[in-house]
């Protein structure tokens, strides 16, 4: 019996968002099909993976992901250069985790200086993240936005509690922003609407529906992402058309499977490979669900996901 493939055409399209400046500029999104469905439409840009670095040494990262950076992670500038020059990073995500009141409680001025120094050292696009403390992130990300003026960075994360301050600063200094809500398509849509109502262009947004690690709620992130993407494409819902972010590393490298030694749990196998697989599997699943921008930690996991992306194109 002859087979006629049921190809679909979609009415909507994901916004194409450029990040960074000059030669290092990258673009995410732009497709008018479901992830990797190039057989029925156009997907002009590959997903981009950003290496995560921090403003303070990664004392809380498990050993196996700390090790590849041990020579550079005492200094965010060295760390950024290492990712760009040695690991060929397409983007870098600087997490200002040291500003968290329960951590080093670094000031907004300190954070701004780190941002300036890192920007001076690399030319790949920079994602600048707060410490996920809604209150403290507001002044920190305002200072960071100003320090990075006109560098077309991605600033995040704007949440319901602090989006006004962060979006205003990103707008004034020509940046993109990440809008994060907690695992709910309606909350995600609502936040995008609130931000655009301030006059922030929707083509400058990146949606973070909140990541979860393999085995720890991945199915929720997976399905929220699929639903957002379907709304963007099949219903042409403009509020759901920004590219999506998967903030993989920080969720993966705190779960038991990336930390428990093989000696304690022999049936879980090698810790080193298990941790890398955990990050790479989480990342690949979210790419299939619709993420266009990933933030990851382990060089080997990034390399393998990159290889898989090439095979998917």
């Amino acid at each position: 019996m002859a087979f006629t493939p049921a190809k679909e055409t979609y009415s909507g399209k994901v916004y194409s968002v450029a990040i960074g400046t000059g030669e290092g500029t990258g673009t995410v999104g732009g497709e008018n099909v479901l992830p990797f469905h190039s057989f029925e439409g156009a997907a002009p840009n590959r997903p981009v993976i950003a290496f995560e670095i921090q403003d303070v040494p990664p004392a809380d990262w498990p050993e196996s992901v700390k090790k590849p950076f041990e020579a550079v992670s005492d200094d965010p500038v060295k760390w950024a250069r290492f990712c760009q020059d040695e690991l060929k990073a397409k983007a870098i995500a600087l997490r200002l985790v040291g500003t968290h009141p329960d951590r080093e409680n670094r000031s907004a001025e300190d954070a701004a200086k780190t941002v300036k120094d890192v920007l001076a050292a690399v030319n790949v696009p920079l994602i600048i993240l707060g410490s996920n403390h809604a209150e403290k992130d507001a002044p920190v990300l305002v200072a960071a936005s100003e320090a990075a003026k006109d560098k077309n960075c991605v600033i995040g994360k704007a949440q319901e509690a602090n989006y006004k301050t962060i979006a205003a600063a990103a707008m004034a200094n020509n940046h993109k922003i990440i809008a994060m809500s907690e695992l709910d398509i309606n909350l995600s849509k609502q936040l995008n609407i609130l931000i655009t109502q301030m006059g922030f262009e929707k083509e400058r947004l990146i949606t973070d529906p909140m990541c979860s690690a393999l085995g720890y709620g991945l199915e929720y992130t997976y399905s929220v992402m699929e639903r957002i993407r379907l709304a963007a494409l099949t219903q042409n819902d403009a509020t759901m058309q920004p590219p999506m972010l998967g903030d993989i590393g920080m969720y993966v490298w705190k779960v038991k499977e990336t930390q428990a030694p093989e000696a304690d749990l022999p049936h879980w196998g090698s810790l080193e490979e298990r941790g890398i697989a955990w990050e790479a599997v989480t990342a690949t699943a979210l790419l299939v669900a619709g993420a266009e921008l990933l933030i990851m930690r382990h060089p080997k996991a990034v390399e393998e996901v990159q290889k898989t992306i090439e095979e998917l194109i």
């Binding site: 196998g269 697989a277 790479a280 290889k307």
Partner: peptide
């Protein structure tokens, strides 16, 4: 393992692997 991710999420009923290390099985 990453091809496995694609097969699992995208409708395979049987996935044939070449090896079954414990870390890979768990993931």
């Amino acid at each position: 393992a990453l091809l496995g991710v694609i097969a699992i999420t995208k409708y395979a009923s049987i996935v044939v692997l070449s090896s079954i290390e414990k870390w890979k099985n768990l993931a």
